[in-house]
């Protein structure tokens, strides 16, 4: 653990007690995330990706091991408003316009009216929704709603951005576009990003660190440091380096998958 360690998990475990017996969602997870890292979590459904993100954000309490965020407990980090969290479902409030939804965290955190307006139009621009500020969520497609929810998490100054399959519901073209923009945003802001995905190319394209997980019990089977440069045009996906990392991720996923 260095001075720059943002998240540090040691032997982290989380067992849900359900009516059908205990579910080991996380088991002995050890992981360090450095400041400025772009970390992708990849693995089959039910391997604990969402759960790990929720533990980081203090939405779920671990049952074993330790975790610190910014050197303090997740709870203290949450109280200091260290995260922007993009949920698997967009979750916009139906009685607020798109602009109103993005303004929600800003109102709660007490940003000034002028600052709010400036930030709303900036993040709307960022996710290609300029002109939709006054529309209501039901007037937008699912993909547009998801982009609005990303804009909502970008509107305030959190150092850590946690995203749970934010692009899962989007088509390939929009996804490529948003991936590019996310990289640009990450480079510009120096945020530390935790990103859950089911797509190997997406994980490899975006990440500096790829965490491969496997289910029952949920655990980390491989952590791959990407040697790709920070500057990544879309066609980097055709280079041998890229394909090699993608291959390693696929092997990791296959190894963690027991076909019993």
């Amino acid at each position: 653990m260095t001075n720059n360690t943002i998240v540090s998990a040691k032997d982290l475990s989380l067992t849900f007690q359900t009516n059908d017996g205990p579910v080991h969602a996380l088991s002995d997870v050890n992981l360090d995330i450095e400041k400025g890292d772009f970390v992708s979590f990849i693995g089959p459904s039910g391997c604990g990706k969402t759960t790990f993100l929720r533990v980081m954000a203090d939405l779920e309490q671990p049952t074993g091991g330790e975790i610190t965020v910014n050197g303090v407990s997740p709870r203290e980090a949450r109280l200091a408003r260290a995260y922007g969290y993009v949920f698997q479902a967009a979750g916009l409030y139906p009685w607020r316009t798109i602009g109103g939804n993005i303004r929600l965290p800003l109102e709660i955190m007490g940003y000034s009216k002028a600052d709010q307006a400036e930030r709303v139009s900036r993040v709307l621009e960022l996710v290609d929704l300029a002109g939709f500020e006054k529309k209501y969520p039901w007037q937008l497609s699912g993909g547009m709603q998801q982009r609005a929810s990303i804009a909502r998490a970008l509107a305030f100054d959190a150092d850590i951005l946690l995203m749970d399959e934010p692009f899962g519901a989007l088509d390939e073209i929009v996804r490529d576009h948003l991936n590019e923009q996310l990289l640009k945003l990450w480079a510009d802001t120096g945020k530390t990003i935790g990103f859950v995905t089911h797509s190997i190319p997406e994980a490899v394209y975006l990440s500096t660190k790829i965490v491969v997980m496997s289910p029952r019990p949920g655990r980390v089977t491989d952590v791959i440091e990407s040697p790709l440069p920070k500057e990544r045009p879309l066609d980097i996906r055709d280079t041998p380096e890229f394909l090699e990392i993608a291959h390693r991720v696929r092997e990791g996923l296959r190894a963690g998958h027991s076909y019993d």
Binding site: L59, A80, A89, Y93, L104
Partner: peptide, 24 residues
């Protein structure tokens, strides 16, 4: 999920009442 969102903002009880529970 809607309540979790406010939790990540560290919203107070009064804020979650006026901004979420009441309109909902």
């Amino acid at each position: 999920a809607e309540l979790d969102l406010l939790k990540t903002y560290n919203a107070s009880g009064t804020q979650s009442f006026w901004k979420l529970r009441l309109p909902a």
